[in-house]
Amino acid sequence: MAGLATRLRITPFGLICLVGLVASLYLSLIWAPRERVMGDVQRIMYFHVASAWIAEFAFVLVGVSSVIYLWLRERRWDIVAYSAAEVGFVFCCFVMITGPIWGKPVWGTWWTWDPRLTFSMILWLIYVAYLMLRVYGDDMPQVKTFLAVLGILGTIDIPFIHFATMWWRGLHPDSLVMTEEGLGAGMEVDMRIALAVSAVVFTLLFFYLMQRRMALERLRDEAEDLRERVEHRHPGTVGA
């Protein structure tokens, strides 16, 4: 275990997250009561909803840091936006994976165009667009500005997507299952506690991954800087 920790360069903060993850696993898989209608499979909810919260929170963070980037023009805010987008995308993928796995036994089908699933799908696509522009625009000098613009527009868009997907399906009975069990009044106190704990743990985990991702981006800048210095002093040696 210690070997794995060093290999992954897990910091004390990371260890706290790991302990938190194990604790929330216990709370959601064993301690929380069994849901009466859906049975044990409802326990997916604790990690699914927590991931959805992070996916949305991360994009708002992308938007806020993009505004600050356009304002101050400091690379570190671009790094914050990029890292938040990448880590948020990972959590958005978790939502997209666990959603259908939960849906199959409950609704009898992997996918329905339920408002929440549709919302996550569109958010996922916006993340994809952001990361694609990052990767394929890497050689453009203005790409950071473009990304900031996309981050801002995407964040402004979140409430619109929310209402559009909600009204689009109306109050479909399918969606009531999600609404009631996801955040609704029908939840027992212990379930809410388990959900709150996993949301807090996922938030910690998000910040831990953010920290790691930002450090990585700064390393990349340092390497880029050194590469330029070598190139400058001795043209033609590097990359040959």
Binding site: V41, R43, I97
Partner: peptide, 20 residues
């Protein structure tokens, strides 16, 4: 439905560690 629950949690953990 155990396998649905199992695979959902496994995928999240595997995904998390793969990303790390």
């Amino acid at each position: 439905n155990f396998w649905y629950l199992f695979s959902a949690y496994t995928l999240i953990w595997v995904g998390l560690f793969l990303y790390l």
